[in-house]
Amino acid sequence: MELDLFLRYGPALLEGFGVTVLCWIVGSLGGVVLGFILACLYRWGPAPLRWVIYAYVEVIRGTPFMIQLFLLYYGGPYMGLVLTPIQAGILSFIVYGSPYFAEIFRSGFNAIPLGQIEAARCLGIPEWRIVLRITLPQMLVPITAPLTNFFIILTKETAILATVTVPELLFQVQSMMAETFTYVEPLLALSLFYWFMVTLTARFGAWVETRVTRHLSRA
């Protein structure tokens, strides 16, 4: 058994884990924020802006994350954007995730029956208040599942950051494999680890979902 191997590389693996989690959390939260802004601009913005957002969403969703990452990291310097691998990783995560999050928020906006909005308008409640008090809280219900789903996709997408030498988990494991010529155990352990993380995220999402839908079930 190669247990001592894992012990020897423990610190590196731990560091890799930290970088993975950092990129994942900062990247997905940034993506959520940008996605929300895009969804709002798409809903209330002027027509030309909506076309731009539409094109952005389509292009990002139609191209591989890896290419976006390479463009940012290798192409960035030619546009005056010199980034460290981690910066490039996080930024590309935000760019990559935002259109998916925007779509989730857009469908969330659409999921609220128009009648409820009209009822609020009839009472003279201002539009921004309607969004804050009626649309947003209810949107949580239909968007929790797709949000969790996409957070999970992003968890797995962190592995791709290894290709631009972001010192995340897969990168550390790969250097470990290259130095020790052992492949089987590290890769299997890594698989199990990701599986564990993903399952945990899914559980957490399911827990949030039952909480936000509580008021919809008959007591």
């Binding site: 029956p113 009648g115 409820q116 009209e118 009822a119 609020a120 308008r121 009839c122 009472l123 003279g124 409640i125 201002p126 208040r129 008090r133 009626i134 809280p137 209810q138 008021h215 919809l216």
Partner: peptide, 30 residues
């Protein structure tokens, strides 16, 4: 619109608020 109340066929209550919350919402916000 504050001077004109409306009641809809589909009720259009806000499901995430209690009955009381549905009534107080506009009283407080408007």
């Amino acid at each position: 619109r504050q001077g004109i109340g409306m009641v809809f066929q589909q009720f259009n209550l806000w499901p995430h608020m209690t009955a009381l919350g549905n009534v107080t919402e506009a009283l407080m916000q408007v």
